[in-house]
Design a protein around this nucleic acid. Structure first.
Lengths: 157, 157
DNA sequence: TATTGTTATACTCTATAACTATA
DNA sequence: TATAGTTATAGAGTATAACAATA
């Protein structure tokens, strides 16, 4: 009984669920030696790339709700990969920066993650891989237009 | 401060996470009027397409652990969309079949899901959409090769 | 009043071990 | 002993309401 899921396999959505599930599983295996997961890794990368970033901005960039980001930042801080410093001029806010240890771990993890990414896209030509990423961005954008009312930073055409 | 996540955006994995997140959100909104979610919908579709399917086979097809499938099947049965019948010849097993109500709901939900899928891939040509699905399948296959030891039904080349 | 970060909470999906009843 | 389905449980991601401190 092959092809029991033929109806689903023609859907981009279901096919993406399966592909993403494979990626997520492989990525978490890849990140485990670094003590990171997909969420903590992506937060660390953005903090390394944007020293002084505030939590609310980080949440906005990663599309993570503020309450959920707190535990991620907590975890990174407990591991001494980042520091939370009171923002001068606004004592409500924190500025996030990576520590030396955080930057070093991030560098190593990034190399492993890029290798993982290459492994998952193996068999695709350079052009096909770029087309895949472009198509995925378009899909994400198509989704964002639906709840434009919930995203005040997105202008409505 | 645009492009705060530029490092992540070059990764197929992270870009797919964002795209899939958008799809999942839109899909659940689409399915809510039918009382379905992505998991229950996909299970219902496979049952409609394969009358008499056993739970363990369904779990294998959908890549869902057997314990997790139980609650999904429970939910579909409680909603009277499917029936569980004792398999003749093996009183341990159940054969799953959709009820008339289940097939009718599935038909309507499928139409809505295909419209959702078209909405999410809007702006992609027919060829680009097929290329996207083909690339996603390749990514999924690349992931499966890693844990071939965990999938005894996959022959190791 | 509004915003930043926080706590508490709940829901979904996922993963594993252990059980039952059959085979 | 092995398999089909089940129960219980735990982890991770996600979403919302409400709060304290500050603006």
């Amino acid at each position: 009984m092959p092809d029991a899921d033929k109806t689903l396999r023609d859907l981009a959505g279901y096919t993406m669920k399966r592909a993403f599930s494979a990626i997520q599983s492989d990525l978490n295996t890849t990140l485990k030696p670094f003590g990171l997961r997909m969420t903590t890794f992506s937060a660390l990368v953005v903090i390394v790339d944007n020293p002084g970033l505030r939590q609310s901005k980080l949440a906005e960039v990663l599309l993570i709700e503020r309450p959920n980001l707190v535990v991620i930042v907590d975890e990174l801080e407990r591991s001494e990969l980042i520091s939370r410093d009171r923002a001068k001029g606004d004592r409500r806010a924190y500025e996030l920066s990576a520590t030396l240890k955080g930057r070093q771990l991030c560098d190593k993890a990034c190399i492993a993650v890029r290798a993982h990414d290459a492994r998952m896209t193996e068999g695709l030509s350079e052009d096909e891989c770029q087309a895949l990423i472009a198509a995925l961005r378009k899909v994400e954008a198509n989704g964002s237009t639906r709840d434009a009312d919930k995203s005040p930073h997105v202008s409505r055409a």
